[in-house]
Design a protein around this nucleic acid. Structure first.
Lengths: 343, 343
DNA sequence: TTACGTTTCCAAAGCGCTTTGACACCTCTC
DNA sequence: GAGAGGTGTCAAAGCGCTTTGGAAACGTAA
């Protein structure tokens, strides 16, 4: 059933039916009722293709995910973000498209989405410190929101981010307060902006106590379980092993725990661990008492906020960029304790 | 730049330009070259909205994910499937939409996608044994592929699935061969078809050796880390604890391992574990030697296969339903060993 | 020369919706 | 009772593309 058939069956023009359904004031309440009833009865829903051609609005938001051997974007953190954003879209009657593309085709994909007019806006994931996509989208004149920030970018743009620096300096301070002096940082890839900020927080806290970060105790890579395991294993086997780990992802933290246990040590007693916890729906950090002491911030919530910020931007293009800085909570769990006494 | 402008700039009609770009034979090679060059130079790309209105094809595949407090679909397994499917779509010039909807609105979402003509086809995720969505989509006349199967459905439809029954009976047999007699099954929700089949495989293997499955050693729930931990903890604390666990998901297996270690037992020596491993890109099961002995089958590959099957179905609607049964490999890792001697 | 295929191109219709501009019709007001 | 103002409705244009049904241009054969 399309608009034409519906209007014929009602003996009204397409104009009137369209107006009645879209809430325009030019139709009488009586006709509106009649039209709505009929539409509901026939289960009528306007053809999106035609509607967006006519209105110029696709009611569709794009997310593009580069895929490469080196850096895997399609991770649990990402999918929780998507879940949050998706909720917000669905509520507002928007759809979401995911484009999974080889990372050398990423720019082309943004251009193409803009040219083909498939989406009304875009969310940028995983910004680098120096993020060329921001300029690209500004040039393409496509509304966008960044999940994270780009330190080296000085134009104004909308973003939603966690206060990574503060979170990691607080976590480091806690470990210092517990007497730890050799604190390892198991970080994400350090071309990613969030990883840079976390390192800054970590180093700031150390320096404020007169400590210099030991390069031996820093690692940076894709945050898999295996990376956490390998790195922790190696560090623990060193001459002056760390007494505490600060980890950028719960997934890697699970690997760190495995390494600690296989080294016949006990987490929380011999070695302390603090991890960042995105509150993933699947990889919950324990139930009542957290397994890991953690800097916690729901990435799903970030997704919701990013999505609704973007929708506002689309509804009102004149609106100036908006920024949301989320503070992470520092949750005490069972993975931290006083530094073991030198023996 | 749109078609009209492009054709004007070339001094050709829109028809000719359109044909030249879409590879129709009615244009001379010379004009085609000229047109393609110009299109490339102006970075022209046809407006999707207009194109799909004209052709009746959206070049878009829908995935709908119900969201509920009870059952969380947006899990790492799902996102790896999506990543695989997305690759296939991108290669074929298709886009993918994700609809995240409350689970009581799921049927309405399918109807709406069909009515609004937003997508050309749909992938059904997480089928139950008795799956009403199959009938629904058949009625809506929308091409679809199921990731998994529905035991109680007897109409013919396209699906991609792992041989869950075989995988779990082989895994059970391995444990039996190692001398284990008390084998626990930590399964997914048993209204899900895959969980039912896995249980069938498990029970079949036990019965063939004259053993009856012990209801005390069976559990069924959403496969979180915490569920694995809790269940294993409880079972290990029982009067006659299991000597081996068969787990439906790597995520829960991680919880099982945590429970084993906290019970001061050693996995692979005191207690054996076999898990199903979807080859998630993030939660790799070790690197060289697997951490867990596992039934392995790449869910990402399943996504690729499902997507291309669906695309074939769309290109040629007359095609009969297609089925892909993937066999899981049984990978030996470090989590299994001979059953400890009764003492 | 005419007739007839081929090749190459085009004008116009159509996809299903929104929106503009106009037109009846009614109700007030002076 | 005429003009002003409001209300409810409609015909038609337009969104940007594809595709149908010609038609001109150009051989080639009779």
């Amino acid at each position: 059933m399309n608009l034409k058939q519906l209007s014929e069956s009602l003996g009204l023009s397409q104009t009137t039916v369209s107006r009645a359904l879209n809430g325009y004031p030019e139709v009488s309440e009586a006709t509106r009722q009649r039209v709505q009833d009929a539409a509901h009865r026939h289960n009528y829903r306007p053809n999106t293709r035609a509607r967006s051609l006519a209105t110029g609005r696709a009611h569709m938001i794009g997310h593009v995910i580069p895929i490469s051997t080196r850096h895997e974007m399609m991770n649990p953190v990402f999918s929780d973000f998507i879940a949050g954003a998706g909720e917000a879209y669905a509520k507002a009657g928007y759809d979401m498209t995911l484009s999974i593309v080889p990372d050398d085709a990423e720019d082309a994909t943004y251009r193409s989405l803009a040219q083909k007019k498939t989406v009304d806006g875009i969310v940028i994931h995983g910004p680098r410190a120096n993020e060329r996509r921001i300029k690209l989208l500004q040039d393409l004149d496509l509304p966008f929101v960044v999940h994270g920030r780009a330190s080296a970018e000085d134009s104004d743009y909308s973003w939603v981010d966690v206060n990574n620096r503060r979170a990691f300096s607080r976590a480091t301070e806690l470990l210092l307060d517990l007497g730890h002096r050799r604190i390892a940082l198991i970080n994400g890839l350090e071309d990613m902006d969030f990883a840079i900020r976390r390192r800054q927080g970590y180093e700031k806290a150390l320096r404020e106590r007169g400590l210099d970060p030991d390069p031996e105790l820093g690692a940076s890579d894709e945050m898999t379980e295996h990376y956490g395991y390998d790195t922790a294993r190696r560090m623990l086997a060193g001459d002056t092993p760390p007494t505490a780990f600060l980890v950028s992802s719960l997934i890697s933290a699970i690997g760190v725990r495995r390494a600690i246990e296989e080294s016949d040590l006990k987490m929380g007693r011999d070695v302390s661990v603090i991890t960042h916890d995105d509150e993933l729906s699947y990889l919950g950090n324990g139930k009542d008492v957290p397994i890991f002491t953690a800097t916690r911030s729901s990435v799903r919530e970030a997704g919701r906020i990013a999505a609704s910020t973007l929708l506002e931007l689309i509804e009102d293009p004149a609106r100036t960029p908006r920024h949301h800085l989320l503070e992470a909570e520092l949750m005490l769990g069972r993975s931290t304790g006083p530094a073991p006494q030198e023996s």
